[in-house]
Design a protein around this nucleic acid. Sequence first.
DNA 1: ATACCTGCAAAGTCTTTGCCTTAGG
DNA 2: CCTAAGGCAAAGACTTTGCAGGTAT
Lengths: 137, 137
Amino acid sequence: MEELINKCRQNGLRITTGLRTILEVLHQAKLPMSLQELEVNPAIIAICDRATIFRTLQRLEGIGMLRRLNFSHSGAKFSLSNGDNHEEYLICTACGEITTLNMSCPVHKIQDDVINSTGYKQMSHELTFYGVCPACQ
Amino acid sequence: MEELINKCRQNGLRITTGLRTILEVLHQAKLPMSLQELEVNPAIIAICDRATIFRTLQRLEGIGMLRRLNFSHSGAKFSLSNGDNHEEYLICTACGEITTLNMSCPVHKIQDDVINSTGYKQMSHELTFYGVCPACQ
DNA sequence: ATACCTGCAAAGTCTTTGCCTTAGG
DNA sequence: CCTAAGGCAAAGACTTTGCAGGTAT
């Protein structure tokens, strides 16, 4: 957590209560959260206006600490970047539950192939599985 | 193309000019398109209202012929389902260009593992690579 | 004939911005 | 102090819906 704060400081952000709280919530959630979810979060609701959350997320994304994700069955979500430039998720198409997958990422090899064959740079990837979770079946 | 029409008919959709045109455009585009892109498409703009396109996409998605995708640097896009329940894309984070990847999908094996370990059903997946294309570097 | 589709316009929803105030460094 | 950050409210950008009239079957 202090590490996150320091990274913000290094990037010239001012350490405000809002920023601190948002980081904390995202850090503890460990799962991507939407702007709205942040907005109604008990820890945030009394502290920050929607616009503040929005701009804070924007700043965090700008310095590469946050990653914007778009899942097909919900809107944009944000998660603290793991620094590895890859994200793997499993999403229930019925209830929307998001699960992170801790796989020793099997896509890196494929990614290298793609880099070589296309000439793209600064490559990252998202691998998302959709399905119906046991509880919803 | 006739195949697509038949599938619609089988699912109880009425074969209207709008539906036909939208299918045609999506079929030829081969790339995911947003509602807006469809709306301003020369073949469609004179035929269909935005609401019609919207509802047509909704119906197509409902019968599983269309897949809704959300990319991190653009809004929702739709592509005719390939029936294989998987999609692989490469997207330039600078210009937004979308490229389809024709890989003999390397993720199916991984998907099987995920199914076995999580109990999810009706699994599909999206694998998206983000990077900066040669032209934008 | 009768559902189903469509167009139009308006209502929603969520995101983004302007402007003035507050407060971190 | 100076400038970034915050609050409020309003503007935007899309998406979605109601309803009256049109059309495939």
